[in-house]
């Protein structure tokens, strides 16, 4: 299947000399939700800005639905909707006027039925004659999504879509993004909220210091890089690990009251049986036992730190 976005050897060096992107290759599949994660300054927004035509690449190539974003920019850009991170609206204009403007700007003939549908889907229809300056922050965010959807794009970029919105609205946004995907829209989102990527994304890409360091399906990523943790609360505190437990990856914490054992999510669970057996043999009694699976956030932090240490 032809990727809907194909980024090839993309590089960007800004005038001051800072290199924001270093030979980035990335394919986005049609109809997926792709989350691009990375710390501040990793190059997420630069990458999106180049694809959307806001920043000029230094070298490399990007195809959107098979169209080169520079030599065939009209066809490429007409497929793309962008919701930038910053809330940018025409304060004095009415909601419906700004949405009509966006549709026209992207070369589409007027279609009041579509505009009504978009506004209704985003719960903005009742506010259509309200000036945008009178909208709440959450409504402004939804208005920007409405503007991006007004020209019926096949690809939607959401740059930090839920930054600064409350939990309830964040959940609503997630539902909306899923509905869009069901309609065939490919969604690429950048986020600081790992929970957001974990909740929504089909695939995840991690970018750090201008390089894509990893792209994989979310479940595969969690399976491959995820770790589990077994935490045992002891009856009696231990001053040190007994010799019988030498060679295990046990860590003694909480002033000797807890033992932590970390293992791969994919590892053989016999390890745990063996460990518990050895604890019992060593006469160590525990009163509680908890397991925890590492979150995407843990994986992300490990990856980024590993990369930074590797490049240091």
């Amino acid at each position: 299947m032809q990727p809907i976005i194909s980024v090839q050897q993309l590089e960007k060096t800004y005038e001051g000399g800072s290199q924001a992107l270093k030979k980035v290759d990335l394919d986005i599949e049609p109809g997926e939700i792709f989350a691009l994660l990375g710390p501040n300054g990793a190059g997420k927004t630069t990458l999106i800005s180049i694809i959307c035509g806001l920043v000029t690449p230094t070298s490399g190539r990007v195809l959107a639905d098979g169209h080169d974003i520079i030599s065939d920019f009209r066809a490429a850009r007409s497929k793309i909707g962008l919701v930038p991170q910053e809330l940018a609206t025409n304060a004095f204009e009415h909601v419906i006027t700004t949405v009509r403007f966006s549709r026209g700007l992207f070369g589409k003939p007027p279609n009041e039925a579509h505009i009504e549908k978009v506004l209704r889907d985003l719960s903005l229809w009742d506010k259509r004659h309200t000036r945008t300056m009178e909208l709440s922050g959450g409504m402004k965010r939804r208005l920007m999504i409405a503007k991006a959807l007004s020209h019926e794009p096949r690809i939607l970029f959401l740059d930090e879509p839920t930054a600064g919105v409350d939990v309830e609205l964040r959940r609503e946004m997630w539902d909306m993004v899923r509905q869009l995907r069901e309609k065939g829209v490919t969604i690429i989102l950048t986020t600081h909220y790992i929970e957001e990527a974990e909740e929504m994304a089909d695939r995840i890409g991690v970018i750090n210091q201008g390089r894509i360091i990893l792209v994989d399906r979310k479940d595969a990523l969690m399976k491959k890089l995820g770790r589990k943790e077994l935490r045992l609360s002891l009856h009696e505190p231990l001053a040190a690990l007994p010799e019988a437990l030498n060679g295990t990856d046990l860590e003694l914490v909480d002033e000797g009251y807890q033992l932590i054992y970390r293992f791969d999510a994919q590892s053989d669970h016999d390890d745990i049986s063996n460990l518990l057996h050895r604890l019992s043999t060593a006469g160590i009694q525990y009163r509680d036992l908890q397991t925890r699976e590492s979150s995407l956030e843990d994986i992300f932090v490990d990856l980024v730190h590993g990369e930074q240490e590797g490049s240091a």
Binding site: C52, G53, L54, F73, R74, A75, A76, R77, S78, I80, L82, P84, E86, L87, A88, T89, N90, A91, S102, L105, F106, G107, K147
Partner: peptide
């Protein structure tokens, strides 16, 4: 004004010469 309020992004990302 679009530069000032940030909405210029829309014009610059539109399929318009």
């Amino acid at each position: 004004f679009p530069k000032f309020n940030g909405t210029i992004y829309e014009v610059m990302s539109a399929p318009i010469s």
